[in-house]
C-alpha cells in the first residue's frame, strides 16, 4: 500500500468522522461554552486535515495556512471567553 492510498483509505475517513462528531456537539451544545469548545476543536482538526492534504498533493505551501489557523484558533477562543464572561455585566 502506498502512502497516498493509506492516507485516502484510513486517515482522511478518521478525520472526517471526527469532524462529524464534533459538529453534532456544536449543534447540540446546551451552553455557549460547549459550542465554543467544539468550534475550537473543529479548527484544530482542520489543521490536521491541511497537514494530511499537503502530503497527498505534495505541496509544502499548504502548511503556511495551518500555521495561520493555529493563530486564529487561539484568538477566537480568547475573544469568545472574554465575551462570555462580560456578557451579563451591565
Amino acid at each position: 500500500m502506498s502512502l497516498s492510498e493509506f492516507y485516502y483509505m484510513i486517515i482522511i475517513p478518521m478525520l472526517g468522522i471526527s469532524v462529524i462528531l464534533v459538529f453534532i456537539r456544536f449543534i447540540k451544545g446546551p451552553s455557549l461554552a460547549d459550542r465554543v469548545i467544539a468550534l475550537d476543536m473543529l479548527i484544530l482538526i482542520s489543521i490536521g486535515i491541511i497537514a494530511v492534504y499537503s502530503v497527498v498533493f505534495n505541496q509544502s505551501t499548504f502548511l503556511d495556512i495551518a500555521m495561520l489557523f493555529s493563530l486564529i484558533a487561539f484568538l477566537s477562543t480568547a475573544a469568545y471567553a472574554y465575551y462570555i464572561e462580560q456578557r451579563q455585566r451591565k
Binding site: 493509506f6 486517515i11 478518521m14 478525520l15 471526527s18 462528531l21 464534533v22 482538526i45
Partner: peptide, 19 residues
C-alpha cells in the same frame, strides 16, 4: 504511516469523548 495513524486515532478518540 504509524505516526499519522496514531495522530488520527488521538483526534478521533477526543472527538468521541467530546460527544
Amino acid at each position: 504511516m504509524i505516526l499519522s495513524f496514531l495522530g488520527a486515532l488521538f483526534i478521533l478518540s477526543s472527538s468521541i469523548g467530546i460527544l
